[in-house]
Design a protein around this nucleic acid. Structure first.
Lengths: 225, 225
DNA sequence: CCAAAAGTGTTCCGTCTACACCCATGG
DNA sequence: CCATGGGTGTAGACGGAACACTTTTGG
């Protein structure tokens, strides 16, 4: 291959993943202790370097698969972080990606194997390098999207109750909302379908289980909470 | 310096700038003919490679200054673009930045010197590599921000008429709005101040000139159009 | 029978939208 | 005097917010 641009310096590029989950009414992200120098032992997002043969998105998907064993996760780019000294080792530019998963889909043994765990956003420790900035930006993106895009369903089981959906919404926004108004808005969206199934695990009475119908959503994508 | 991460491959990183201006009722961006291989002669955004001593934001500011001679421009990161084959030369990851400038501040001779010109968004040609994607994403970001953040004022002179402000708003959104409703909303924002000055260049009667008071905005940042 | 969560409607208020005419001036 | 863009108010529709009680059932 002909080489162009010879005179310019190259840098390492990595991807770092902000993986959100929702459990026990709390929004959580996956973090682990860094197992390489520099910064060994510090809390950190899970990440990896971008290979020469893969796009940024490919790299993020690979890293996510490595960690979770899951494919086709909902994933969005958060942004590129490129301060010169952001990595104490050497110059590394990192592209942050945000992913949403249903915590039940993520095997606890895989978590232990990779040394990561779910930590509530409210109890987020100080993270390696600029990872707290990445988390903050990802969380901001989520807050902006939660009421106009159907992203919640990536964090919930296929079948979920309206109370779960509402608690998730409240956890992301950081404020509580009126139950009747919330349900009124849900009822407007035909692609959130009530099933005949009842979840009896959280109350004596039991709560109807709902399902997100993506096909119906794609037909008329009007999401508003 | 100790070297870590030795086994990973490094790549070139560039910044590309989507520079918006507003003139004759049209939203325009600065593009030029590419003056290096590969792709010499194709329409392209203005960009440059990131040096080892500068952050991504620094690089974007440097490139913007090189091109326009202007500092402290309004500038926001659009995102990182990293498909393997996005650059036909060799692997280059590019971080797109969007900047807003007042076209009057940009010397025509500098434009000629750098071989760039203002092109209306509506007449955007096919651009080099994935630059059209970058433009589309930057435009989307602008549409989202134009009605809830005071970004318009970066595209207008210090003193502007309400008609100018409205035309700009319409150009960004791509739809026209009612004049009286628009002005009602402007009147709600105390930081958009009417001056005693009159612009007589666009009508016989003359139009009042307004000014954006940033201090007042910072005190109570409630922008809504 | 009681605790605990699920489920359900109405009213009010504020906001957004639609809409048409007079003004000031230069040529 | 007329053409051109600047400037102004109101009424009706709509959507969002506030608000409290009944239902179900396992223990």
């Amino acid at each position: 291959m002909t080489t162009y641009y010879e005179e310019y310096s190259k840098v390492l590029v990595s991807v770092d993943c902000i993986i959100f989950g929702f459990d026990e009414g709390e929004l959580r992200i996956l973090i682990g202790r860094r197992n390489m120098d520099p910064g060994r032992g510090e809390w950190s997002l899970y990440g990896g370097f971008v290979n020469s043969t893969e796009s940024l998105d490919d790299a993020a998907n690979r890293v996510l698969f490595q960690l979770t064993g899951l494919r086709n996760l909902y994933m969005r780019q958060v942004g590129a972080f490129g301060n010169v000294d952001r990595d104490p080792g050497e110059r590394v530019i990192s592209v942050a990606y945000c992913a949403l998963i249903n915590v039940n889909d993520y095997d606890v043994r895989l978590q232990e194997q990779h040394g990561v765990k779910w930590v509530s956003l409210k109890e987020m420790p100080r993270l390696y390098s600029d990872h707290n900035l990445m988390v903050a930006k990802a969380h901001k993106m989520m807050r902006e999207k939660i009421s106009c895009e159907p992203i919640s369903f990536n964090l919930l089981p296929n079948l979920f109750t309206l109370t779960q959906l509402q608690k998730l919404y409240e956890a992301v926004c950081g404020e509580s909302v009126d139950k009747r108004n919330f349900r009124k808005r849900v009822k407007e969206m035909d692609f959130i379908e009530k099933t005949e199934l009842i979840d009896k695990t959280t109350s004596r009475r039991g709560a109807s289980l709902y399902r997100f119908n993506r096909k119906a959503y794609d037909d008329s994508p009007n999401f508003k909470l």
